[in-house]
Amino acid sequence: MKNLNMSQLFEKLNDVKSLFIYGQKIIPVLQSLVDFMQETVPLLENINHSIADSTSKIPRATDQINNVTNATELATTEILDLVDVISNNLSTIDNSLKDITEKEKIKSSVIEKLKALLPDNAEAMQLFQEYKDNDVTISQIEKLSEVFPKIQNDTYNITLSLQVQDITSQQLAAVNHLIESVQTKLASLIHDIDDTNLKEVQSSENYSTPEGATFDPNASYDKSGDRQDMIDEIIQSENQKASQDEIDKLFS
């Protein structure tokens, strides 16, 4: 009985010895793990700080994008105002030229009548001819009148090109939305690492997104007409489908 106990004791001591030997082997590994952790912590803190820093800058980025949208809208409005002024001025000049043309026609008619009254006066006839040769007003006005519709058309085309402002503002709103989504994700990441930093980020949220703002992330300034053709085809096809459904209902 005593021998059995001693044998068990030695067995246990051997186990403890193995454990010590294993411990001696594992201690350097644990030490290197601790060293690694000590080196990693500042790195993680650094990453955390960078994320917090980047996140706090995001509101400023969205503000700047909103400022760009507001500035382009203001500038576009100013351009539209100027185009309206140019159009109105062109109309005024065009109307004045029309009046001048009418008066010139009356003047020509008066000259012809005068010529008819003085058919025997050679000097007067010569003067009338000289007057006619130098009278280019009507032809000049006609040339100018041809240019006016072109200028009007060009100014109108400027107006149409300004549709780009609405399209880019939607694209910018989509970018803003994307940035805000990234900020939310980053904030939640910071929350996982350190609660206090999240509070800092939230307190720096001074950006404003228009309430209920909607936008089309796929908005594009495509003047080719292909997209309109595609839409027309879809509408035609859907209308045909609807008509066929109505016919089918009638016969069912």
């Binding site: 109108y156 149409l160 090109s161 549709q163 780009v164 609405d166 399209i167 908005a219 300034y221 495509d222 003047k223 007409g225 997209r227 309109q228 839409i231 509408i235």
Partner: peptide, 11 residues
């Protein structure tokens, strides 16, 4: 009906 931006006056 349905028009895509940018539109032309013809459309």
């Amino acid at each position: 009906n349905y028009i895509i931006k940018p539109f032309t006056p013809q459309v």
